[in-house]
């Protein structure tokens, strides 16, 4: 088994956030950023979208612009959804942490 998980902890948090909301369809970038903030991870707008861009380029998520009405004004927002590869990577990372924490638990016991 590899000594590193398939994705970084930050990428994992994002996949996790998208996975949790997977049943409701895609998720707005602003909401994902908010979820990261709930986990104490603060990223500026360009830094966050650069991170999302790398996930898109890696094929783990897919993004698109969707129209939205705010106070009667039409704006657009970037929304993201998990791809199958993203879902697999998320699952593989969960397995990785489960196996590592399981091994540690066995050592302790």
């Amino acid at each position: 088994m590899s000594i590193l998980p398939p994705v970084t902890h930050l990428q994992f948090l994002i996949l996790e956030a998208l996975g949790e909301r997977g049943g409701e369809g895609d998720v707005a970038g602003a909401e994902v950023r908010g979820t990261l903030g709930d986990h104490g991870v603060s990223r500026t707008l360009p830094a966050f979208y650069e991170l999302m861009g790398r996930l898109e380029k890696a094929g783990l998520v897919v993004g698109h612009y969707a129209p939205k009405s705010v106070n009667g004004q039409k704006v657009r927002e970037r929304r993201y959804a998990l791809t199958q590869e993203g879902s697999d990577a998320h699952e593989a990372t969960c397995s990785f942490y489960r196996s590592r924490t399981g091994a540690r638990t066995q050592e302790v016991s």
């Binding site: 602003a30 707008l45 999302m52 612009y65 106070n71 704006v75 657009r76």
Partner: peptide, 26 residues
């Protein structure tokens, strides 16, 4: 192109939504 597509455009869209939510027509 990369900076425009992956950073500037989505960030600007979010800023626009934020401005509109603060003040109608903002």
């Amino acid at each position: 192109d990369g900076m425009r597509r992956w950073m500037f455009d989505p960030s600007l869209a979010e800023l626009a939504a934020e401005a509109a939510s603060r003040q109608p027509g903002g």
